[in-house]
Design a protein around this nucleic acid. Structure first.
Length: 505
DNA sequence: CGGGGAATAT
DNA sequence: TATATTCCCC
């Protein structure tokens, strides 16, 4: 995703997405875009990119992708983007032959031949995006699409047009923010005045007013973090922050999911935000924020039907692969079904090496979850009856890690599974780490049954982004367990945010 | 007048 | 929302 400043249209107004399956090519193109002062985000996984598109769809103008190799795979995505988001797509290819009628057939796709991406083509790219944005702004104008080669317009700093250029608003980059934090630390929290901070930061063009504004937000964040931290009573909207205050601010400042480590009011507010974006199932409510390892926080959502969703609140630009994991109990009360879209499993595995982490932090996640280890990028491992064991054990160990020493939330205590999962056996190669904290279900009689859903069809699947899941009442469990779980699984995934709905390989 | 910071605007 | 601007106080 790339964006750039212009005189009349601000950076956030125009984004161009680069989707590429060729790493080298992507790097080159991204470098060029960067050189042209676009901001580039890189995603290896298409779902991650799609998520970004969805988030930024209102400010995205063009999709830039290549047709090399895996066109068939990409076609679904292109189609999806066209239908749901209605963005113009530009295909690029090092080989003209790759661009044939079938690839161009899709509506809204603009062919772009790029033996190599020249600066001139880059200019055209920008011109196209700009034209589209302008067109969009003129509601009166029709739906005309601008084709390729829209005469090269200039881009970049075309300055002094006689008109008084408005100074672009300051964007607080990570680097700037880091300087800001250093300055504040150096001066002392109570003596950090804007004027001094500006001097210490030594950033050209940065004014005292800029810093003052930032400082105001900073202090507000600190205050909120502190309130959240000192909050004692546990209710479903309470959450915890285990960050230092500065970390908290840092995170909330940069995190697209920034709500995790704030107080109740903020949490609610942001939950509403997600509801309005149809990004969180409406019946899911935030339970807590937990930390599995340093700088790795998750929001835990749950609902009365025992869905549990973990959402990483990391900055996806830094950890684009870590997003979601979740599970729910099947309606038979004995099985658990899963969904995930992350490398959470590996994170958790690392966590296993530091069993004290969750305990020392008083993580207090009165909940538990599982994240199975995905087979490559696929979702649930399935098939024979042996897999349940490993999932079961992961669930067990994770619960221990989370130091479940608080009463379980109501949504969980209503649950009456009847078994104690076998003891931690995460991985044959991992040394067993007995936990000092017994799983909350350690006194259950019967083993939980973990029946995985049957494999879905090949390829990516996703639910309809445009339509938030309905809160339809649960249906009675059918006789066949496998089928029932399959239904449950699809029901589960359909109630999750789009990021969570990747099914299959 | 300079500057801090809350409130308000964009 | 993030950042800018206004406003009021010292």
């Amino acid at each position: 995703m790339i964006g750039k400043y212009t005189q009349s249209i601000r950076a956030k107004d125009i984004c161009i997405l680069l989707v590429n399956d060729d790493y080298v090519c992507q790097t080159i193109v991204a470098d060029m875009l960067d050189h042209c002062r676009y901001e580039a985000f890189s995603y290896e996984r298409e779902m991650d990119a799609l998520n970004m598109i969805w988030e930024k769809k209102d400010m995205t103008e063009l999709i830039l992708t290549n047709v090399h190799r895996t066109y068939a795979k990409r076609h679904g995505i292109i189609e999806h983007i066209e239908n749901k988001i209605k963005l113009q797509i530009i295909l690029m290819s090092p080989d003209v032959d790759d661009i044939n009628v079938s690839t161009v057939g899709a509506k809204g796709v603009t062919v772009y031949f790029m033996k190599c991406l020249s600066m001139n083509e880059m200019n055209n790219l920008w011109a196209t995006a700009l034209a589209r944005e302008k067109n969009k702004r003129n509601l009166s104008s029709g739906k005309l699409l601008h084709e390729e080669n829209a005469g090269s317009k200039r881009m970049g700093d075309d300055n002094e047009h006689g008109n008084i250029e408005k100074k672009p608003r300051v964007v607080w980059t990570k680097e700037m923010h880091q300087k800001f934090l250093e300055a504040v630390t150096q001066l002392g929290e109570d003596k950090a005045f804007p004027k001094k901070i500006v001097e210490l930061m030594n950033v050209p063009g940065l004014t005292r007013a800029n810093v003052a504004s930032h400082l105001q937000k900073y202090r507000l964040c600190m205050k909120r973090a502190q309130e959240g931290f000192t909050g004692s009573s546990y209710d479903f909207t309470n959450n915890f922050s285990f960050n230092t205050l500065q970390e908290s601010f840092q995170q909330s400042h940069w995190n697209p999911f920034q709500m995790g480590s704030r107080n109740t009011a903020t949490t609610r507010f942001n939950f509403d935000y997600y509801k309005s974006r149809s990004r969180t199932p409406q019946h899911l409510s935030l339970l807590k924020t937990i930390r599995l390892k340093p700088n790795h926080n998750f929001s835990v959502y749950g609902d009365e039907t025992k869905n549990i969703l973990l959402r990483s609140i990391e900055d996806r630009r830094v950890h684009p692969k870590t997003n979601f994991a979740g599970f729910r109990f099947a309606r038979d009360g004995k099985s658990v079904v899963f969904g995930e879209n992350s490398h959470l499993a590996s994170s958790v595995q690392q966590q296993l090496s530091f069993p004290e982490m969750g305990i020392d932090d008083s993580t207090h996640c009165a909940s538990f979850f599982d994240s199975f280890t995905p087979q490559q990028s696929s979702v649930a491992p399935m098939g024979t009856g042996d897999e349940p064991v490993s999932i079961n054990s992961q669930l067990s160990s994770l619960a221990a890690l989370l130091a479940v020493d608080e009463p379980m939330p109501d949504i969980m205590t209503h649950l009456q599974p009847s078994a104690a999962p076998i003891r931690f056996d995460w991985n044959s190669e991992v040394t067993q780490q007995p936990s000092s904290v017994a799983p909350p279900w350690s006194d259950w009689d019967e083993q939980l049954r973990f029946t995985c859903p049957p494999p879905q069809s090949e390829g990516l699947q996703w639910t309809d982004w445009a339509e938030p899941p309905s809160l339809s009442p649960q249906q009675p469990l059918s006789g066949n367990t496998a089928n029932a779980n399959s239904d449950i699984f699809s029901d589960f995934t359909s109630s999750l945010p789009p990021e969570f709905c990747e099914v299959g390989a």
